[in-house]
Amino acid sequence: MKFRRRRRENIELNLISLIDVVFVLLLFFVVTTTFTRQSQLRVELPEAVSGMPAEDAAGKRIEVAISADGVYSVNDQLLPKSDLPTLLDAIQQASGGDNTLRLSISADGKTPHQSVITAMDAAGKLGFSKLDMTTVEAQGGR
């Protein structure tokens, strides 16, 4: 007896609808994802309760002073330029590569905000994690 072979049907998967679903899921995850930036500097704000300066255990600290015009000085050495690379070099020299020292930023009350941010950016790029912002005790009865 001779049997006839049936023709095999070609099985097709419709991938177009699967690709559409993947794109919709991708779009959903892109839209609902939140991106957070972790800050690299922890700022210890001083409290003006006693008016006494905090004692430093190590004794050595780096002082960055900013005048009202935005001119920088590092450990009482006036910098020739008021830009980030010059400030980075001066802080690196003053610290000797030791980024575990405390870095104190003293800014005049009328210093442009950008100058203080530039000093904080320089500290962050060099890896300083102990940053102090110095203030003076407020006078009563202004």
Rank of each mutant, 00 (worst) to 15 (best):
A107L: 05
V43Q: 11
K81H: 13
F28D: 00
T86W: 02
K81F: 09
F28H: 04
R102C: 05
A123I: 07
P80I: 00
I105S: 04
L13T: 14
G97L: 02
S106A: 14
R61P: 00
F128P: 01
T100L: 07
P46I: 12
Q139R: 09
T86Q: 08
V30D: 01
I117D: 07
T135E: 13
Q114N: 05
L41Y: 06
G124C: 01
R5Y: 04
R102D: 07
A94K: 08
D20S: 11
A65Q: 13
N14A: 10
T118W: 04
T34H: 12
D121H: 06
R42H: 06
L27Q: 02
Q38M: 11
H113L: 13
A119N: 05
A48G: 00
G127P: 04
D69S: 15
A94I: 10
F128V: 08
L126C: 06
P80N: 06
L79E: 03
D121V: 12
F23K: 08
I11V: 15
L25P: 09
K110L: 15
R102V: 15
A65P: 00
M133W: 07
A68M: 03
L13I: 15
R102P: 00
F23H: 02
S95H: 03
L13K: 12
S50M: 03
M120V: 11
N75P: 05
Q114K: 14
T32A: 10
L103R: 05
K60I: 07
V64N: 03
T134L: 14
E44V: 13
V49T: 09
L79A: 04
A90R: 08
S50W: 01
Q114S: 10
S106G: 09
D83R: 12
S106N: 15
E47W: 14
D56P: 04
D56K: 06
L15K: 09
N10P: 00
L78Q: 14
V71R: 10
L79R: 06
V31N: 02
L27V: 15
V22D: 01
I62F: 02
D83K: 11
Q40F: 10
G141C: 08
L45I: 13
N75R: 00
L88N: 03
V136A: 14
Q114W: 12
R61N: 04
N75S: 05
D83G: 08
T86R: 02
G51S: 07
K130P: 00
N14V: 11
M120W: 01
L79I: 06
G59R: 04
Q38N: 11
Q93G: 00
G141F: 12
R42F: 05
E9T: 07
N14H: 08
D132W: 09
D69K: 08
E63D: 11
G51C: 04
V136E: 15
D121M: 13
K60A: 09
K81D: 10
A58I: 04
T36C: 02
V136K: 12
I16P: 00
I19M: 14
R8G: 01
A94Y: 05
I66V: 15
G96E: 04
D20W: 13
D89F: 08
H113E: 14
K2T: 10
P80A: 03
G109L: 14
L41A: 09
G141Y: 10
I11S: 09
E9A: 09
K130M: 06
L27T: 14
A65H: 08
